[in-house]
Each structure stands twice: as structure tokens, then as C-alpha cells.
């Protein structure tokens, strides 16, 4: 009996599910990713601004600065506003941090390494992305503060303007590969990455992605100069840390989705086929592509001012949605006249 239980535990510890839960894309990955990417963002942005960035904590280039900040946030008291709706106030950041991690379950890290293999993987990712904006709205309303309320209202507008082109632009990819299954989409790119066949769609997807993850130039809901800190104004301590965590997980999910749809996902040559398992090589490739995406997003933060909400709406409704539709039509024509381009 003991032996059986032991075998069960050992079997679980060495199984793929355990590795997926605790390593990629599980706890270790999201934890390390946020710690490193926050440090990397501060460091790279500092170099763009001709500064040093974190320098002292952790001996080498301040690499432990994020960890120190997280610890500091953990030990801080969080004070809810007196007239706040407490349940919403406490729960919104918790869910804001945890919901985007679900999007990672749909992303294939190798042909077989996928937490929830499904024929509609892309739709699952979109469903999760569509869920996240509700939480800031709840938070903004629950804080009972004018700044947070305006921040929450802005999120509604921003997400409606950003999500539709995000969905429409991916339609071209689906048509080319003939599947909603992300593994099939990646495999369809074995000849050309879709960014080469769909530059317009990739651009629209990229811009609306920035709007969805609320980064500069579309960090309108948290505009510091107008709204103090938007819907997060009242949060302190680890609740604030969780909102930041959720933001960076959204960033990771967005970059992974972009790499999967347009940059060939996990596809890439394995330098030592006998030596390195093909799963690891695939993971390394998709993580590398994600790192490039994150770098681009960070440099964009250093190169542009923030737009206004009406300008974002103009951009979304008058430019991105028509462009996404044009892209769909162009893809149809492409498939009709050159049927060999698609992977299907």
C-alpha cells in the first residue's frame, strides 16, 4: 500500500503535469518571469534614458532589486478606504493577478508541451483576455474614489477599442492555417512565419495588444499625470504588487500569443538534436521570441508619450478595425489565388 502511494507520488512528481504546473508555464516560470522582466525593464529603460537603473541590491547590476521590492510590499499594511466596498476591493487584485495566468494554459511551448491541448486554443486565450478588464472596473468602482472610477471607466472604452481589432486581425492567421488549434497554427508556419504573409494583420494585432496590456503609449487607465494612478490609486502593499504582477503576466501572455501567431511559435532549429531534447529546444525558441517581443515593448515605452482616450478610440474604431477587415479580405484573395501559401 505504502509502495503504491509512493509510486503514485513519484509518478506525479516526474510526470509532465507536475512539470507544467510548477515549471513551464507554471509557478516557477511566471514567478521568475515577473522578477526578471521587471528588473530588465527598469534596466533597459534606464539605459534608454541615459541612467544606470538598479545598481546595488544583489551585487550584479541590482538583479535582486525586484525581489527586495516584492518583500517590502509583502510587509506593508494595506489600508482600504473607509467607504470602499471591501469584498471587491480585496478580491479584484487577487483575480487580476491570477486570471491572466490561465491564458498561458493555451499556449503551446512545444508540439506536445501544452497544458490544455484543445482544438480551439486561440479562442480560449481570447476568452481569458476578455475576462481581465472586468476586474479593474470592479476595483475602480469598489474603491469609491473619483480617480479610480474614471480609471475604471477608461478601461471599458480602451478594451472595447482594442479587443475587436485583436480578434479580427487574428482571423487571417486562422484562415491561412485553417485551424483554431494553436499547435496547427504554429506547424503551418514551418515554411514562412505569418508575419511575412500578414504584415498588416501583425501590425494591427501588435498595436491592439499594446492597448490590451495597457502599456505606453496606451497606459491611459493609469495615467499618472491626470488620474494619480488610475484604478490602482487606493491600493498599497501586496495588493498593489498583485496588480503589477497581473500586468506583467498579461504582458507575458500577450507576447507569447504574438510569437505563436506570427513569429513561428516554438519552431526553430535544434542545434544538437541528439543532445538536447526537442521539447527543450522548442521552449527555448518560444521564450527567446517572447524576450524579443518584451524588449520591443519596453523600448516603445521609452519612445512615445501617452495618447488620449479619444485618440485611442479613433485609432481603434477608425483605423485598426477597418485595417483588420482589409487584412481579412486580402488573406481571402491570397488563399483563393495562391492556395499553396497556407499550411492547411
Amino acid at each position: 500500500m505504502m509502495q503504491q502511494i509512493w509510486d503514485l507520488i513519484l509518478g506525479f512528481l516526474t510526470s509532465k503535469y507536475f512539470l507544467q504546473l510548477f515549471f513551464i508555464p507554471g509557478i516557477a516560470f511566471i514567478g521568475l518571469f515577473t522578477l526578471i522582466v521587471v528588473w530588465f525593464e527598469r534596466k533597459l529603460l534606464a539605459r534608454v534614458m541615459l541612467r544606470y537603473g538598479p545598481l546595488h541590491v544583489g551585487r550584479v547590476a541590482g538583479i535582486l532589486q525586484t525581489l527586495a521590492d516584492t518583500l517590502k510590499l509583502l510587509f506593508k499594511e494595506f489600508i482600504p478606504p473607509r467607504k470602499a466596498y471591501k469584498l471587491g476591493f480585496y478580491l479584484a487584485p487577487v483575480f487580476y493577478a491570477s486570471v491572466p495566468t490561465l491564458a498561458l494554459t493555451a499556449i503551446p511551448f512545444s508540439p506536445t508541451w501544452i497544458v490544455y491541448p484543445s482544438d480551439v486554443g486561440l479562442l480560449i486565450a481570447y476568452a481569458v483576455i476578455a475576462c481581465t478588464p472586468i476586474l479593474p472596473i470592479i476595483a475602480g468602482w469598489a474603491c469609491n474614489n473619483r480617480y479610480t472610477m474614471i480609471g475604471g471607466l477608461r478601461i471599458i472604452f480602451q478594451d472595447v477599442a482594442g479587443e475587436i481589432p485583436l480578434l479580427l486581425s487574428a482571423l487571417g492567421v486562422v484562415m491561412l492555417s485553417g485551424s483554431f488549434n494553436l499547435v496547427n497554427i504554429v506547424n503551418a508556419q514551418s515554411r514562412y512565419w505569418f508575419i511575412l504573409l500578414q504584415p498588416l494583420g501583425a501590425l494591427v494585432f501588435f498595436i491592439s495588444l499594446i492597448a490590451m496590456v495597457e502599456r505606453v503609449p496606451f497606459d491611459i487607465p493609469t495615467a499618472e499625470q491626470e488620474l494619480v494612478f488610475g484604478w490602482r490609486t487606493e491600493y498599497g502593499g501586496i495588493l498593489f504588487g498583485l496588480t503589477m504582477f497581473g500586468e506583467y503576466i498579461s504582458l507575458a501572455a500577450g507576447s507569447l500569443l504574438f510569437s505563436t501567431l506570427y513569429l513561428g511559435g516554438y519552431l526553430g532549429p535544434n542545434p544538437f538534436p541528439g543532445f538536447i531534447p526537442s521539447d527543450f529546444a522548442s521552449m527555448a525558441w518560444i521564450l527567446l521570441k517572447m524576450a524579443v517581443m518584451v524588449t520591443v515593448l519596453i523600448v516603445i515605452r521609452g519612445a512615445y508619450p501617452r495618447l488620449r482616450i479619444d485618440q485611442l478610440l479613433n485609432l481603434g474604431w477608425k483605423w485598426l478595425i477597418p485595417l483588420a477587415m482589409i487584412n481579412t479580405v486580402l488573406t481571402m484573395l491570397m488563399i483563393y489565388f495562391f492556395p499553396w501559401v497556407g499550411g492547411a
Binding site: 534608454v48 541615459l50 541612467r51 544606470y52 545598481l55 523600448v299 521609452g302 519612445a303
Partner: peptide, 18 residues
Amino acid sequence: RPLVLAFSHVFRRVFTAK
């Protein structure tokens, strides 16, 4: 152009004195 210029500044000399 701003994007390219911003990225090119990564390779410039850091201005800050420690």
C-alpha cells in the same frame, strides 16, 4: 524615428555620476 533614436541611446554613455 523616435523609436530608432530611443533604442540607439542604449549604446550611448550613461550620463549619471554615481
